[in-house]
Nucleic acid binder design. Structure first.
Length: 291
DNA sequence: ACCGCACCCTGAGCGC
DNA sequence: TGCGCTCAGGGTGCGG
């Protein structure tokens, strides 16, 4: 679900509820691979700590604590990070939301998918981390600990440059779409924005990465940054699960040109948008605009 | 070093 | 209604 724009929108909206506050209580669900740090240990490590900052690296969020430790968060595919007063039908199971729409107007009650709840001193609102599929992650990192997941990340996608793409694509015969999803090259691009960036750059996603010319790499870098920034401006994409801290939807799903538009007419040329599978991910493109 | 694939997990939506 | 199948903004780990 969440790619760089959704993670950044989440960061901006949830930070005011975390930064400067002291964690009074932590509740968790039972151990699962969602917890890279065992839930009981997490409770012990976090309780009493004050949050100094919330930063983003690619699709990861890092909570910086007053004892020098950090908490690594990843939203996976269905992760939702929000406050106790958030209201959204996306916070309910769809079957329930269909039957009980008005329920979205009442307070969210933590359910079996709500793996982490932080309560704060003073009158801070509780912050909840819910993740139905549990592809998300939470991990406590000791002071000065270097984390393998973070250290293998490439340049943040908002800093993408043509020179970098040109250099990194040399010798890479994988499809350019697959290449864009490689977090070791550009951190933050996911399935939606890879497709959208390639559309804006006029590049066919199936092309071998190494076949891109220097000018094409320049164009792709510019369009990648542009699409990510535009999505952040609109609050990210809410296609199935994503909500910001207060439960509100993003707006970028309304601006998509190709992602999940298979069979529809291209908004530029009218051709039928095609779908292929690359690296086990659905890939959408306009056969006439993208060469 | 790089590539493709299986797999982790839950739920929605579809055809029959 | 229910079953079986496919699909979903992610990442890791394994062979070749």
């Amino acid at each position: 679900m969440p790619e760089l724009p959704e993670v950044e929108t989440t960061r901006r909206s949830i930070a005011p509820h975390l930064v400067g506050r002291t964690i009074r209580a932590v509740t968790t669900t039972k151990a699962s691979y969602f917890f890279l740090t065992p839930p009981r240990e997490l409770e012990r490590r976090l309780t009493g700590r004050r949050v100094l900052a919330l930063v983003r690296r690619g699709k990861y969020l890092l909570l910086e604590l007053d004892d020098g430790a950090r908490v690594l968060l990843h939203l996976g595919m269905t992760g939702q990070l929000f406050t106790a007063s958030a209201r959204s039908v996306r916070l309910l199971n769809a079957t329930r939301s269909g039957a009980l729409l008005p329920e979205a107007q009442s307070a969210f009650e933590p359910d079996v998918h709500t793996h982490l709840v932080l309560s704060f001193d003073d009158d801070g609102e509780r912050v909840l981390f819910r993740d139905v599929r549990k592809f998300g992650k939470v991990q406590w990192l000791a002071k000065d600990a270097r984390d393998a997941r973070l250290s293998k990340l490439g340049v943040d996608a908002l800093e993408a440059t043509g020179a970098l793409l040109y250099e990194k694509t040399r010798g890479r015969k994988a499809a350019i779409k697959t290449f864009l999803l490689d977090q070791a090259v550009l951190a933050g691009v996911g399935n939606i924005y890879a497709d959208e960036a390639l559309f804006r750059a006029g590049i066919r996603p199936t092309r071998a990465a190494r076949s891109l010319t220097k000018p094409q790499c320049e164009k792709l870098a510019r369009e990648t940054v542009a699409v990510l920034m535009r999505s952040i401006e609109t609050g990210g994409s809410s296609i199935s699960d994503y909500v910001s801290a207060d439960g509100s939807d993003g707006g970028y799903q309304h601006e998509r040109k190709v992602y999940a538009r298979t069979g529809e007419a291209c908004s530029v040329c009218g051709s039928v948008i095609k779908r292929v599978v690359l690296g086990q991910r659905s890939t959408h493109y306009c056969p006439s605009c993208q060469k």
